[in-house]
Amino acid sequence: MTVVETTGDEGDLSADHTEFKVRSLDWSISKLIALKNLRIALRYPANIIVWGIIPLLWIAPYLLMMTAIGGSAGNTYFSEISGFDDFIRFVVIGWFVYMYVDNSIWGIGNTFRWEQFSGTLEPLFLAPVPRISILLGGAFSDSVQTTISALVLLAFSCLLFGVTYSVTMILPVIIVLLLMLFALFGFGFMLAGLIIVFKDPSVLTELVDAVVFTVTPVNYPIEVLPKYAQVLSYLMPATLAIGIIRELTMTASFEPGSYLLGVLGLLSLLALFWAVGLAVFRYAEHWTKERGSMGGF
């Protein structure tokens, strides 16, 4: 229709077409998607706050059980194996960091699923933009929301359980959190790929969440895991990050050597996760396109 009406402007149209370039990653699209998601999220501000409070109900059973089993001698044994004197402080900060892992699994991994539920997946897929940019945009906005939720969780935990943390090392903490966050984006891409192939997001997501949660030292020190699980655990960026952040916030000491080593480790994991995540997602996209089951789920 428009072609007939704009025949006089053909020169302009073709100029537009020649300027259109296929990109493998388009940051402006990611920004656009992130802003769109945040705008929608802000329409329901209560959600972000509540998602900060609900995890308190998940933390509490662990703390209560550890209190019941450990009794008065619990902290002594705990400090022997973990090096930290208070398991409640240890657990709360672990959950704070784990909120980001949870987000990479439930938020980023399931981005397309949520778009499908709201009926906007098809128009998004029809747009001439790299799908990975859509995912990345979703990851940005989810991370902003997670940060708010995680801070709410931390504030309420401090109030309820009477724990405190040092904030003098805030900058190194933020650097570590950011590195972990970007590494987790790669993990989210990988999951998004698996979800468009396996199509049953709830089961896959639950399964991945449960395994990752078990091997991540959130509620317990890594030392209680069997050796093979410890190897798996160190492959998760959250393990390194939780370890460093615990040192910084619980002991308030900064050892440049071990910190740099941790940062290097996180950087390597970031590169690894992005490479694997992008490869898995692209392969999954290709796989589903070949079988014509992209929109199917």
Partner: peptide, 28 residues
């Protein structure tokens, strides 16, 4: 796997505060 994936983190958390299979505090 589901039933184990709930139990295992619990057992691991418990073993972080108890050196053995028995807990005097729980028994009380």
């Amino acid at each position: 796997l589901m039933p184990f994936l709930w139990l295992i983190p619990m057992v691991l958390a418990g073993s972080a505060v108890s050196s053995g299979a028995n807990s005097a505090s729980l028994a009380d």
